[in-house]
Amino acid sequence: MKLLDALHRWSGGLVGLLLALVGLTGAILVHRDAWVMLPHAGDTQVQETQALAATTVALMADPTRQPQSITFANAGFGLDRLTYKGGAGAYVTQAGEPVLEWSSQWARPELWLSDFHQHLFAGEAGETVIGVTGLCGVFFVVSGTILWWRTRRTFEFRLRPARMTRPSIVRHHRDLGIVVAPVLALSLVTGTVLVFRPLASVILGPGAPAEIDGALKPPAAAVVQLSDDLDWEAMIRTARLRFPDAEVRSLSLPRAGSGLITLRMRGPEEWLPNGRTTVWFAADTGRMVAVRDAVELPARVMAYNALYPLHAGKVGGLMFRLVMTLSGLGLAMLGTLAVWSFWFKRPRARVK
């Protein structure tokens, strides 16, 4: 038990501040749609096929100004978001009228906060660090619960330490940790599996990562040049005819090594905000190449698709967002006070 206690304290002292920052940014991002206050952000979501087609045609009309992707408005945020090369982007109304443009993610707090939360501003390397930090967080939840059990009879819930002394901080850390442990476990496990997909085998069973990779892999297609004369309206209509009850969520131009335009949709049964129901079109002709119906995915893949909505509070309405806010703020407080008490609040040596 002494070894477990030492590992808990030392690892918390080393990575606690990073966990605190990840928790705080996560708590802020859970309410992202509410605090991005721009004209028309409160507009009612439009999903009428003709309106979506007309907006897409207008945004894609100029080949020199085509966005790399369009994320259409949702029920909680009434603007379409465009992304361009080099981190540039824009918000437009659902009729395609400009609202705000930016040349870098640093101009928009919701973008750089999201980048920090997911990648630490360091791309794939930062994402790996986030994943390792999440694993440490899972260890803290498990080891902290074991260590708390010895002192369970002294449990007393407080929002803050009774005094800013090291014993009071340690006691508050221990008792607050056991209260938020269930939601912390949910946040940390879902986030870590999203970063390290092979860990899906731990919660979904052996072979799950390979099954997920295979089910979510885009279809094979020849790499072709994007045509300047595509019928964008026909693509929207074709997708809607194939999935009449699904929301049109995003349209993406081909990425490097791909010759496919990707149209993502969200079926009524899906939790994932942008859905996994997908229609692919050839970049040179606009013809439909393949479709994926999310309700026909294997059960374990559907379970994997539920991890992000749970992690980001995208299901369950305001009450669940508040639960995930509690998780983020709890992690922020636990991490900050753990680092402070470990490195800066050592008891003074007694003078003999």
Rank of each mutant, 00 (worst) to 15 (best):
Thr277His: 00
Trp35Thr: 04
Ala208Val: 04
Glu97Gln: 12
Leu337Ser: 05
Ala6Val: 13
Gly123Phe: 08
Arg346Phe: 12
Trp106Asp: 12
Pro182Lys: 02
Leu113Gln: 04
Glu211Ala: 14
Leu29Pro: 11
Leu135Ser: 01
Phe77Tyr: 11
Met324Val: 13
Tyr304Ala: 07
Ala34Asn: 11
Ala256Arg: 11
His8Ala: 09
Trp112Asp: 01
Glu233Ser: 15
Ala53Met: 06
Leu120Val: 01
Ile203Leu: 15
Gly137Trp: 03
Arg240Cys: 09
Asp228Pro: 15
Arg292Asp: 02
Trp343Gln: 03
Met288Arg: 09
Trp106Met: 12
Trp148Met: 02
Gly267Asn: 06
Gly16Cys: 08
His119Arg: 14
Phe320Asp: 04
Trp106Gln: 10
Ala303His: 09
Met37Val: 13
Trp102Cys: 06
Ala234Phe: 08
Trp148Ser: 02
Val295Lys: 13
Thr133Ile: 11
Lys314Pro: 13
Val351Leu: 15
Val99Leu: 07
His173Ile: 04
Leu100Val: 06
Ala185Gly: 11
Pro161Trp: 08
Arg321Phe: 05
Arg346Asp: 10
Val99Ile: 14
Phe121Tyr: 12
Ile28Gly: 10
Gly87Ala: 01
Gly259Val: 04
Pro254Cys: 00
Arg255Lys: 14
Leu3Ala: 15
Lys345Phe: 07
Gly134Asn: 01
Lys217Tyr: 07
